[in-house]
Nucleic acid binder design. Structure first.
Length: 807
DNA sequence: TCGCGGCGCACTCTC
DNA sequence: TGCGCCGCGA
């Protein structure tokens, strides 16, 4: 949890700004010199001097972020840009922290007043200062995904939506898409293009509830900022003047709302229709100010967030969106071997309608890509574990420079089991998220209820946690009162005596109100977040309840809470020295620039920080990193294991029917492959247990797209041999599509050699994994009685049944 | 009002 | 497989 604070002096050794990252780091001075004198590569040089707007299209590993960093340093050093006038937007907080480090390494302490943050953090800052214009209270809660889902659940049941036909998740996604496309709920009903159901009422109700709770969800952060800019010309103008340089990393992952935000900020001046026309001849220059300079960097092949509303359109249409824009392409890769790149190129080239691009590397061919076909996911994990150990023992790699990627979080389990058993040190990034654990959410709800009295969702969550005798009945009565009087739930709690509840119940409720009030006072007195947290854990009885429990689970809960408390304390000390957005030292930024360790600031911080921001530094970790392909973006490792290369896993089952989604899966694979510097492993499992029942998937179609000469197959599946032959790939794929997985294990050759004994494990195309219970007859007459678990016992003709024997 | 046990369902990816 | 919800008994 302890990310390095922004202390340039203590910054870890960093990569050079360009050139091979593997080379020993040169001294800071020479690097700065190199920066200012330019590099030997003309395109990179051009990135510095090229005007605005500027689009840099760069392949994986070509140092996109480095180029962006360079431009910032150039602006400050050569063009005397005030660092406070620079806004750099990155995709994750982690990336923002890294960028601040890099810039600080070149221009020193002045980098501290640069504004580097994610879209969401930037918007929160602006909203804190400006949202009162829309009538919001200054303290608003920020709802994460789980909160939004909970809220939408209430809405759906209010509207009587059948959860079978209209799952909460689906409704929420629809609403989220509307917001990302800036379609407000009044016009959402007539929204065309989605084809499926639309939920304008749910949208309206959901927004109403959010509004009542003084809460914003993630999509609101962007949407409302855009609305602010559009509704108040002076606000828009203020930020256009304040930011003279706007730089956006990972532009391919921006959605429509984010694009409009950038356009409002950096578009041509006359775009602001609301701005008063300069008819007054006395002050013609007033208000006539050039838009901020804009530079965006991206790679359309790495767009992997379409499901969240990101649209590649933004990068393809950049030059139309921003007239006069120039484009620079960077195609040299400084990260990977040519072998790795060729594989990546081969896969991505199967996507239609992408601009031609061919990455090349000067790093040499390097090792071939190792392929492995495992029998099961355990076998796959076993292979990865032993391979990692071997690399480390032979001194060819370190744990910290090794990563294991998978498509879904659920796949991490097999690796964890085997890694624990074999003693390979590892760390899972993401997965069951820290902030999604029950106990953490509980205390966050406490903190929110204290900070934002209107936050009904949070108040009701902790009303009876820990148990204090306020049950459904009491809650219902209070809720009825709140509805009747039109007041927030927390307000109704104070008037509990007006209900028909028993005096005992009223007393319990009063006790709860007092508890919250007491801590609200604590906050008002300026107590830092961790003090409030520690107090509420104690006074609410939450701590005591866990302590008294005999459930071993509660022990880990205690540990988690202790860690959370540590996070809060760390936040307080950080906040008092440096602002996490790097904006704290800027006096005239927005509203309250002073870093503050207060409770609202802490809540804001934890709402916006994703767990994947806590990826340990690869160099210092010394442990193998396990993560999903999505979180892998922007990272790189010497050795990469890309696991689960199966149709149904990667590409994911739900994407197989949609060419557009399939293209995104291919880009995801591309991202995974290009994370590898030196060694790449591709593995798949013939059989994989998915919630209980074994399931067997055909090899990923993406595997067949990689030329044979690049591959070194360490082990092939026992029964399947033809699929990796590229000439057979198309046929295989076709056959597979028609027959489903039935064609995978019935190769004639495999059948001939099958000999079964009692106790053998076999794989049947229809029944799945089974155990041989009894054998009768022999040779071609052999029959086997096989127990297929939940599928029952079957009698099979060994010679003809579509089965495969497992080791 | 609470606690327990049985059952049914769930797994994309994330700021 | 494990989590969350529901219904029941105390």
């Amino acid at each position: 949890m302890s990310q390095p604070v922004e202390t340039p002096a203590a910054a870890p050794a960093m990569e050079p700004l360009f050139g091979e990252p593997d080379k020993p780091v040169r001294k800071r001075r020479s690097r700065a010199k190199e920066l200012l004198e330019g590099s030997n590569e003309p395109q990179r040089e051009a990135v510095l001097h090229e005007g605005s707007p500027l689009l840099v299209v760069a392949g994986a590993g070509s140092g996109k972020t480095r180029v962006l960093t360079r431009r910032i340093a150039y602006l400050v050093s050569e063009r005397d840009a005030h660092p406070g006038s620079i806004l750099a937007i990155t995709f994750t907080n982690k990336a923002a922290a890294e960028m601040r480090h890099r810039v600080a390494d070149i221009i020193g302490n002045r980098a501290r007043i640069m504004w580097v943050s994610t879209f969401h953090s930037a918007c929160v800052r602006i909203l804190r200062a400006e949202l009162h214009r829309f009538g919001y209270a200054r303290e608003f809660s920020i709802y994460d995904d789980a909160d939004s889902k909970r809220l939408m659940q209430l809405v759906c049941s209010d509207l009587g939506l059948d959860p079978k036909r209209h799952p909460v998740r689906k409704v929420l996604n629809w609403v989220s898409n509307c917001k990302n496309d800036l379609v407000d709920h009044e016009s959402a009903g007539s929204r065309a293009g989605l084809g499926e159901e639309s939920y304008p009422e749910a949208y309206a109700q959901y927004q109403l509830r959010l509004r009542k709770a003084s809460a914003l969800d993630f999509d609101d952060l962007i949407m409302l900022t855009v609305h602010l800019f559009q509704a108040f010309a002076e606000v828009r103008e203020h930020y256009r003047r304040r930011f003279r340089h706007v730089l956006v990393d990972e532009y391919q992952d921006t959605n429509h709302a984010q694009y409009v935000l950038i356009r409002e900020l950096c578009g041509p001046s006359d775009a602001g229709a609301a701005a008063p026309a300069p008819t007054d001849q006395e002050a013609p220059q007033e208000g006539a100010i050039d838009p901020p300079e804009l530079m965006v960097v991206g790679d359309s092949d790495q767009s992997i967030y379409a499901f969240r509303g990101a649209t590649i359109r933004n990068i393809l249409d950049f030059s139309t969106d921003f007239p006069g824009a120039r484009t620079i392409m960077l195609e040299q890769n400084y990260r990977s071997t040519q072998t790795v790149l060729s594989a990546a190129n081969a896969v991505i080239s199967h996507n239609d309608g992408r601009p031609a691009k061919n990455l090349w590397s000067a790093a040499g061919d390097g090792d071939r890509i190792v392929g492995y076909v495992a029998d099961s996911e355990h076998d796959e994990a076993q292979f990865v574990a032993s391979e990692v150990r071997e690399l480390v023992e032979q001194g060819r790699g370190t744990y910290g420079e090794t990563a294991v990627f998978y498509r879904t979080n659920a796949q991490s389990r097999a690796f964890e089991e085997v890694f624990i058993r074999t003693g390979v040190p590892y760390r899972v990034v993401g997965g069951v998220r820290f902030y999604e654990r029950k106990e953490i959410r509980d205390v966050i709800a406490y903190l929110r209820a204290i900070a934002n009295p209107a936050d009904d969702v949070s108040v009701r969550r902790i009303l009876n946690v820990p148990k204090r005798g306020i049950g459904d009945k009491s809650e219902g009565a209070i809720d009825a009162l709140a509805q009747k009087a039109g007041i927030p739930f927390s307000e109704a709690l104070r008037r509990a005596s007006e209900t028909a509840l028993a005096p005992g119940s009223v007393k319990k409720i009063t006790g709860f109100v007092d508890l919250i009030d007491e801590h609200r006072q604590l906050v008002a007195d300026g107590a830092p977040a961790h003090d409030v947290l520690a107090s509420i854990l104690d006074r609410s009885g939450y701590h005591a309840e866990l302590q008294g429990s005999k459930d071993p689970q509660d022990e880990t809960r205690m540990e988690n809470l202790a860690e959370f408390l540590a996070v809060a304390e760390e936040f307080a000390t950080q906040a008092s020295t440096v602002d996490l957005d790097g904006a704290g030292a800027e006096p005239n930024l927005v509203g309250a620039p002073e870093p503050d360790p207060s409770l609202p600031a802490f809540l804001e911080r934890i709402a916006l920080v994703a767990d994947s921001d806590q990826i340990p530094d690869a160099e210092s970790g010394g442990v193998v990193t396990l993560m999903t392909l999505h979180t892998a973006k922007g990272l790189e490792f010497d050795t990469v294991f890309l696991t689960g290369c199966e149709d149904g896993i990667l590409p994911h089952q739900r994407t197989l029917t949609d060419p557009g989604e399939l293209a995104e899966e291919r880009r995801l694979t591309y991202v995974g492959i290009t994370r590898a510097r030196k060694r790449l492993y591709l593995s798949r499992a013939v059989s994989r247990s998915a919630w209980g029942a074994p399931q067997h998937n055909p090899p990923s179609r993406f595997l067949g797209e990689i030329p044979d000469r690049l591959m070194d197959w360490r082990r092939l599946g026992s029964a399947v041999t033809s699929w990796q032959n590229s000439s057979a790939t198309a046929r295989y794929r076709e056959r597979n599509r028609i027959e489903g997985f039935a064609s995978r294990v019935d190769s004639p050759r495999a059948k001939k050699s099958i000999e079964l004994a009692v106790g053998d494990k076999i794989l049947h195309t229809s029944f799945g994994l089974g155990t041989v219970k009894k054998i009768t007859g022999s040779g071609s007459n052999a029959k086997a009685e096989v127990d297929f678990g939940s599928m029952g016992a079957k009698l099979l003709a060994v010679q003809f049944a579509p089965i495969e024997k497992l080791d």
